[in-house]
Design a protein around this nucleic acid. Structure first.
Lengths: 219, 219
DNA sequence: TTCGAATTTCGAACAGTGTTCACTGTACGG
DNA sequence: CCGTACAGTGAACACTGTTCGAAATTCGAA
């Protein structure tokens, strides 16, 4: 860890990186990608230190140069996944559409991500790691808020609340927000964990649930 | 494994067990209790074969006489926990009360179990074990239905559906049932996984959610 | 370019895991 | 009472996360 300020850092504002740092960052990405692959394949408990080392062709002990521990890697994974999910949700909404329609699109995106990447969804939303607690004030909290942002915006537009920070809303509107989110989350959880496999017309039931959510929390 | 039919089995219908079988069953219970303790302490991934063996003062290999594998034990755990949860829900409802009140009590029981035993709740409702899938037609399916029984009864009473098998209901009533369940489940999931810790008035928000559930699915 | 220091990498080791297997000792049934 | 069936065992195997000392490599300054 060097504290010397390299001269070109004053001019190049975008990429203050030596060759080594670039390679390091590339390897970090490779590790995270491999971890996502392990996650998709075998579930949260299958994310495996030694297998990750093999995947990036490096000794297990070397990996400790890049990540402090398996738990630290888990935290980074959670942030990464929240980002992916937020992107999926944001990509699903048409910013030109009216609030109701945007909310519906956002919910569809939420569901799509959960069903397509159920292991990732499970990792970020349920406590599966023994003794793991999200670091208070850590990065995972804000990352989660990003997922809900489009829905919060739609709701704020309808209710007239200023800003998008739910905690700052009125008690009634906050309860409405939580209510809508938990309705959506409940269906999606059950579906992602295969508790609704026996349902033939899941799409129709989800659409009905969305209608109910919209009519009970947006109006 | 002996196939000979013991004579007294014809007469004693309740306890066809030798001393040995009794001891075996007792040890099985001890193991399951120890597993529940491990689960409560360290989450689903912490249920540990060798520690279980230590807890019941037996060699790890001996445990294989009683359970086929760790996965088999997991399955038994899931059934056991569904039973506990169903008992908690059933115990919460006053059979004399009207349907609406019974539904409210059942939902409170559902929530109470989830918050008081979040690790058990997580184990049964989310896929945390790599590659584990509930054996189709296995015991876990029916066990889950038992948890929902009081709510299904209340809903059946209101809608006039015959019987309690949701799959046999009309499309509309089935969608209502799923909708109500997922609303309840969503709030409870978020709460059990500490995503609502920032909410000061969780009880009030839950009560409001219950009101909404009752008004949108029971009437 | 060369030298010294810092840092990255590695292999070996430790304690732990689930599971298998050949081997006991014991308790039961005929 | 004896033979057998079976519960119980410890050692072993292939894993896991993590630590540590030594070797190798890279980097910055002279």
């Amino acid at each position: 860890m060097t504290n010397t300020i390299r001269e070109w850092e004053y001019h190049a504002s975008v990429a203050p990186m030596t060759r080594r740092e670039q390679q390091q960052q590339a390897l970090r990405r490779d590790v995270i990608d491999a971890a996502l692959a392990q996650l998709d394949e075998g579930g949260p408990a299958a994310v495996n230190w030694r297998a990750l080392a093999r995947a990036v062709a490096v000794s297990p002990s070397t990996l400790y140069t890049y990540f402090e521990s398996l738990d630290a890697l888990h935290t980074e994974l959670i942030v990464e996944i929240y980002g992916q999910m937020a992107a999926e949700v944001a990509r699903s909404v048409d910013r030109q559409a009216p609030a109701t329609e945007r909310a519906r699109q956002a919910m569809a995106g939420y569901r799509r991500f959960a069903t397509r990447h159920s292991a990732r969804f499970t990792l970020v939303f349920t406590d599966v790691l023994p003794g793991y607690v999200a670091p208070a004030g850590g990065p995972t909290i804000g990352a989660q808020a990003t997922v809900l942002l489009p829905m919060a915006e739609a709701l704020a537009e309808v209710t007239g609340e200023q800003g998008v920070d739910i905690e700052a809303w009125s008690v009634g509107n906050r309860a409405r927000a939580i209510g809508g989110w938990s309705q959506l989350h409940g269906f999606v959880c059950l579906e992602a964990n295969h508790h609704l496999d026996w349902l033939g017309d899941r799409d129709a039931v989800f659409a009905a649930a969305c209608d109910r959510i919209l009519s009970t929390t947006l109006f």
